[in-house]
């Protein structure tokens, strides 16, 4: 359950970014399909971690990013839903992941 400690880091980033405002109402996270992060667990941790902070009661908005890669064999962009997915064109596992590993705080809505 590293979502708990990830959420602690989210809080630090949010607190930093919301300096000068009185309330954080919404937090937008970008979470890639290959990031190893469970959005549901993030959701659960969010309320717990934001308690007694500027972001207490805020809503969490998770923007999912799909997994993407580059097949070295056929020099083509491919969708990657799991790390062990072979290239749908040639069956090779030589795929360089190019997207879907994101774990970012994108923006926050404040007042």
């Amino acid at each position: 359950m590293h979502e708990m400690s990830l959420m602690q880091s989210v809080l630090e980033i949010v607190e930093e970014a919301s300096r000068g405002f009185t309330k954080v109402k919404k937090v937008f996270l970008e979470i890639g399909a290959l990031s190893g992060v469970d959005p549901q667990a993030m959701d659960f941790c969010f309320d717990v971690v934001m308690r007694d902070t500027l972001a207490e009661g805020a809503t969490l908005e998770i923007i999912r990013k799909p997994g993407e890669g580059w097949c070295m064999q056929c020099s083509k962009r491919v969708d990657v839903s799991e790390r062990y997915d072979p290239c749908p064109w040639c069956g090779s596992y030589q795929i360089q992941v190019t997207g879907g590993e994101e774990m970012r705080v994108k923006e926050i809505e404040v007042e």
Partner: peptide, 16 residues
């Protein structure tokens, strides 16, 4: 006007 969006664009693991 009441609710402002603040761009953050920071990796959660940036500190680590």
């Amino acid at each position: 006007e009441a609710n402002r969006l603040v761009k953050v664009e920071q990796d959660i693991l940036a500190k680590n």
